[in-house]
Computed example of a mutant assay.
Amino acid sequence: MRPGAARRCRGEGRVAHYGHCGSGNVKIKVETANDGDQERCVTPGDTVLGFTENGSKVKYASAIGAC
Rank of each mutant, 00 (worst) to 15 (best):
Y60Q: 15
A61F: 08
A5P: 02
R14C: 07
T47P: 07
N25I: 01
M1R: 04
Y18Q: 02
A6T: 15
A6F: 09
N25S: 07
I28C: 03
E12Q: 13
R7P: 04
V15Y: 06
S56G: 00
K59W: 05
G24Y: 02
A5V: 08
T47W: 07
R40L: 15
A66P: 06
S56V: 13
V48N: 11
V15T: 15
Y60G: 06
K59L: 15
M1T: 05
V15D: 03
D37G: 02
K29S: 11
V58A: 07
K27T: 12
E53Y: 03
A63P: 12
K29T: 10
G65H: 11
A63L: 04
V26S: 03
D35N: 10
V48E: 14
G4D: 11
G65S: 09
D35G: 13
C67H: 04
V30P: 04
E31C: 01
Q38N: 03
V26A: 01
Y18A: 08
G19W: 12
A5G: 09
G13Q: 10
N34P: 00
D37R: 08
V30Q: 05
G22W: 04
R40Y: 00
V30R: 03
D37E: 14
G55F: 15
A6E: 14
T32P: 06
C21E: 14
A66C: 11
A5K: 10
C21V: 08
G50P: 07
T32W: 09
R40D: 00
V48M: 13
G19N: 14
P44I: 00
G45T: 04
D46V: 10
N34I: 02
E39G: 00
V42S: 01
A63C: 02
T52R: 09
G36F: 13
Y18T: 03
P44A: 08
T43A: 01
A63V: 15
R8G: 14
A63W: 02
R14E: 09
V58H: 09
A16Q: 09
D37L: 00
I28W: 01
A33Q: 08
K59D: 03
I64L: 06
R14L: 10
C9D: 04
G19R: 15
S62Y: 15
G22N: 08
T47C: 14
A6V: 15
T52F: 05
E12F: 15
V15F: 03
K27E: 06
G55V: 06
G65M: 04
L49N: 09
G36P: 10
G4L: 03
G22I: 02
G55M: 05
G50C: 03
G45Q: 03
G22P: 07
R8D: 08
K57A: 05
C21N: 12
D35L: 11
A33L: 15
L49A: 02
N54M: 10
T47H: 08
Y18N: 05
